[in-house]
Nucleic acid binder design. Structure first.
Lengths: 205, 205
DNA sequence: CATATTTTTGACCAATTGGTTAAACCATTT
DNA sequence: AAATGGTTTAACCAATTGGTCAAAAATATG
């Protein structure tokens, strides 16, 4: 593969990423992607045989990228509380740089859940729980966080950072009405989210 | 408007609701809707001139319905804690009966934020805050919930109930891997969500 | 019953879509 | 410089799409 090959293939991939994340699989036109990449439409088919293959390439990279952002928090040797703070700072910052990813992924996964299977198959969920127990077992015990509660807690933690981006269109409209800036809201959310979760977990009321 | 009119128009509307919520505006075909309604495709255009008008009719009804589900909690004369419990029981139950609404709305709003404007314009957000202050002012003060914190808290409360439905495709796949039933998870979530939020709000740590 | 009006249908259309193909282009090698 | 190989393009195609239209069927009106 020559240098110009890689350039063209990358140009196509980047253009496809932009168009697909903005318009979705159904809404995106091959011609749009070709225009965005500044090339002929036939070249798309030369490098990626069909629209579906091109989409899958984009989808898989984005999905893998998204999930990988959850991982580092399990590696760092921090207290449970610091892990949560670390997660929200990093994760919301990542989403600020890629604000359209949540809506794109959620929509396409609901449209075709099958696509996610191969990515999830590569994840070892139990391992994450084991790592967490090894590093923060005492805290988990102290706060009475059992294995059964993990799905509720984890989905709640994810919801708090991801949902504002998925529902950005709604929130932005609502906020504008009461004079609140969405970007300011996001900045504040990094700390608010961590405080909120930590208080909920630690509280024994 | 005769009786059979209403039947046909309603049949079309219901069919359109089903097809649009499942496939989205771009993915839905007028022929699909006609088939679903058991009528000729031309009839769609007879009652709703264009695909876009038909979609708008469906979208507006769903959006209004969705937002209206947030309102009752402000009317009931309950303590803040009971309001939160009431909300999650009612809201998650509503979403269990209409599981595809969140993903549909979030996607279409992000695809075309303009569509939401006219619905949001009809909402008086300040009124909700005033009602809340009038009914639960003392509790808000006690828990140090100020006007500036409201957006963070409200979006968090919504995220916790809506996100699992928006991300259903992801969660269901993940849960299956560790042997958890999604419907059971949802049932448990009504109480978990309320407990979680109440603990976070009440905690003074 | 005959007429007028509304509802429903099937045939049709122009535009768009993803995809194909053969030829042109370009860099390398011989 | 001629041949070779991969790369890029323009022209084209079959299928699908939202939408139209005139006629038929059903219903209401006199």
């Amino acid at each position: 593969m020559s240098d110009s090959d890689k350039q063209t293939e990358e140009k196509i991939f980047d253009a496809a990423t932009e168009v697909f994340t903005e318009k979705g699989l159904d809404g995106a036109r091959m011609q749009d992607i070709a225009d965005q990449a500044g090339i002929n439409k036939s070249l798309l088919h030369y490098y990626y045989r069909t629209k579906d293959r091109l989409f899958n390439a984009v989808f898989e990279k984005i999905a893998a990228n998204m999930f990988s952002k959850f991982a580092p928090v399990f590696d760092e040797n921090l207290s449970l509380e610091d892990k949560i703070r670390f997660f929200y700072r990093e994760h919301i910052s990542f989403l600020q740089r890629n604000p359209r990813l949540p809506a794109f992924l959620l929509n396409e996964i609901n449209r075709n859940p099958e696509r996610l299977r191969k990515i999830i198959a590569t994840l070892d969920i139990e391992k994450f729980w084991d790592m967490l127990c090894a590093q923060n077992g005492k805290e988990l015990e102290e706060y009475n966080i059992t294995r059964e509660k993990i799905p509720q807690i984890m989905t709640t933690i994810a919801a708090i950072s991801v949902f504002p981006f998925a529902a950005r269109g709604i929130f932005e409209s609502l906020f504008k009405k009461i004079g609140i800036d969405f970007d300011t809201y996001l900045e504040e959310r990094k700390e608010f989210a961590a405080d909120f979760v930590i208080k909920a977990i630690k509280s024994k009321v």
